[in-house]
Design a protein around this nucleic acid. Sequence first.
DNA 1: AGCCATACAAACAGATATGTATGTTAAAAT
DNA 2: ATTTTAACATACATATCTGTTTGTATGGCT
Lengths: 219, 219
Amino acid sequence: MRRTKAEAEETRNSILHAAERVFYEKGVSNATLDDVAKAAGVTRGAIYWHFSNKTDLFLELYNSVSLPLEDMIARDIEQPASGVLAFIEKLTVDWLDELASDEHRQRIFTILLRCGYGEDLMPVLERQQEVDDRHIASLESAFARAGNEGYLSANWTPQSATKALWWMVGGLCTEWLLFGRRFDLAAEGREGLKRLFASFRPATIDVAARAPADVHSIA
Amino acid sequence: MRRTKAEAEETRNSILHAAERVFYEKGVSNATLDDVAKAAGVTRGAIYWHFSNKTDLFLELYNSVSLPLEDMIARDIEQPASGVLAFIEKLTVDWLDELASDEHRQRIFTILLRCGYGEDLMPVLERQQEVDDRHIASLESAFARAGNEGYLSANWTPQSATKALWWMVGGLCTEWLLFGRRFDLAAEGREGLKRLFASFRPATIDVAARAPADVHSIA
DNA sequence: AGCCATACAAACAGATATGTATGTTAAAAT
DNA sequence: ATTTTAACATACATATCTGTTTGTATGGCT
């Protein structure tokens, strides 16, 4: 049954896709390689041919999506300082929209959230932290540029604004993913971000403004 | 080797404590009952005497801490509307302080965060959501009382303020617990909450206030 | 004092997952 | 055309882990 190289690559991908579904449904450590094999329509022999063991399969699964994950940072935030806040807000809203519509990412994130990180898959954890740190640094510098030119409320510093945004989005996504997606991620996120970014901007006429002026937040 | 009732209760507790440590270190589904037994200084026979199986042990472990977990909501927020925001802020800061200093709660929360919730321990998930929902409702009503008397910025609604606070605290704790407690939870939380609650309050003199007036936020 | 239920330990049986070794077929290489 | 070797399937050997059963010494009750 020797297959052609293209076919072999095909089965390898089908194994990865099956692993994603099975790991998501049963949890990484609770899923057996036979589950993955059956879900992929092959036997465990095929898995052991393409991967050396389960943790290796998990690592390869992570690698197969880590690049599109990191490219978010690629698009540098090179905007005129006056538009930086709106740009970050739009970027975040877009990110939420993507997550809400891409079941692939949802499964990957969910798996990563509750996989446990027991000794062997520490490299995943470290790469994740590294990506996060760079992302946070990028956000901080953007907020700093806005702040230097007076576009950031005196209430906030670049660091605190970055953390507030990071934690709020993180908490939002975590609750949505871990607790059964019980609400509209994109809509709730958009609403919350609108309020948060309104508080980031220096107030012009906030006193006695009972009816919110509904300043457009994006563009 | 029949022990007295007090001694039996003692071993039961030591099993629960051992389960907490082992579940935290190896993950619930990855930990074996023999690990727990050895950590507790007993054999599996003792565990099967006190508990019917692993999920039952997990449920009892959860029950042993769920009450002190729920009592947070007990202390109702019965404050004069003018002090509600400061009271909520102090409550949240206290909560973070407690978590930061109580390794017991840290382990429980970490276990709950990454335990996977596979079919059998759905009751835990449902009770958790129920507690959360009541807590959120309580916060919302408190913010609503503040808002009705003009103590909430026009930027925020009771619902949006509740969610922003909830998600930010959740994201903060999740990152701290899941990623190795790499920062000072209490300090960072206090700082972030100070900024967030400052944005919750209606602005009196925000225009041209370049130096943050460092309004005391608690008491 | 004697009896029985309790609180375990130790041994056993069954299922399941893992890793490896071997078999098989067809695609490449020669 | 043969030989080789890649790409699997199948079979097996081993190690856990679980659930249950059996043994047993003691505490508490009469």
